[in-house]
Design a protein around this nucleic acid. Sequence first.
DNA 1: ATTAAATTCTAGGAATAGCTAAAAAATGGT
DNA 2: ACCATTTTTTAGCTATTCCTAGAATTTAAT
Lengths: 220, 220
Amino acid sequence: MELTTAEENYLKAIYHLSEGGKKSVSTNDIASAIQTKPASVSDMLRKLGEKEVIQYRKYYGLQITALGMRLALQTIRKHRLWEVFLVDKLHFAWDEVHEVAEQLEHIQSPLLIERLDAYLNYPKFDPHGDPIPDEFGDVRSRPRIALQEMGIDQSGQIVAVKDSSPAFLRYLDKVGAYIGARIKVLDKVEFDGSVEILVDQKKTIFMSKDVTNNILILTS
Amino acid sequence: MELTTAEENYLKAIYHLSEGGKKSVSTNDIASAIQTKPASVSDMLRKLGEKEVIQYRKYYGLQITALGMRLALQTIRKHRLWEVFLVDKLHFAWDEVHEVAEQLEHIQSPLLIERLDAYLNYPKFDPHGDPIPDEFGDVRSRPRIALQEMGIDQSGQIVAVKDSSPAFLRYLDKVGAYIGARIKVLDKVEFDGSVEILVDQKKTIFMSKDVTNNILILTS
DNA sequence: ATTAAATTCTAGGAATAGCTAAAAAATGGT
DNA sequence: ACCATTTTTTAGCTATTCCTAGAATTTAAT
């Protein structure tokens, strides 16, 4: 079963909104997620329902089907593999990859993705630390906690960011807090929640609570 | 000025047909080149005329403008760079690259192409030996002759193929006549026009006239 | 030069995907 | 339980790009 580019984008948004912990996904949510109008969303939901990638009951919510899940994960896999390519091979910055990957994810060629995956050495996480589903849609996610939740002397590795806005990513780059960096909590300030951390056993930096809440750590 | 994917494909076809030595490009030619109906072509020509990438007079032919030329060469540049990527990096075979490159060429990101070009080490020719235009649309083409036209003892390098059908490309791969191979003509058979050549100073192979007419050589 | 054949264009229609405006249904406050 | 607000859907339009059928124009043949 083939999906158009627009359908793939809707399905991906629906998947992300479903995973986001929300019990039910609303038409308005989807509309603002993909920058379109609710009326257009209604139209598309009907179509996605007919294609059986979602179960759709008018005025009530929708539920993504097993088929829909599989297709969404395929698109997400492609998106994240391309992001790895752009950053690792073409030296794009974190904040430059998204819109290009958004286009590349719609290229249709199973062989291409297979070869790209091999070429990148079967990466398990994208540059933002999000897991890359395998060809069957299986995602191996690791238990992660916010840097803010860590205790003094606890150490781990930066594996993801919650906020991936260009401004935030640029800040992280500047202070050397890249995905994969090994960090250790040296001190926490009670008063404002700011944290002092050691990065890669050599550089000490301070981060505000706003920042540490947005950095996810795989503890060790 | 922005072109849609469909417009880019028409313009590219028009460019190729114009370069093909034809004095004027017909609606039928375009239709068969891009596998569509003449009626659809007429429609599109009107639109391309309005966008001033071609000069179009109903019932008489069309002429590609300087603007159209520049845009067509940009698309061709992208197509050929992607082909190099697919073959050099992802180890695609000659006959597997075309349809994927056909999709990749429409990705819009000047930065991507700039980085890809650098990553591939600024290649001047694609895997079929066709020249890659630079960012300004300049093409440095080399004088090439058909293998069939070479004399005995003349040597050179395979730089392109006229017929790039999968069957032909597979045949070339099988006999070891890849793009870039250095060859020397050992003998020519008067009777049927077949040619005996030495490939890379080690392997001797026979090729029929049909084959040698489709292989282009940069003589040395 | 006139007619037949081929080519090319126009008209009208279908599918996709978006929009606005307005109707229908669900939700929330009192 | 009712009414107002919010959410969602439907209806009707627009634009793109393709199609078929048929009309207009050019070309080729006698």
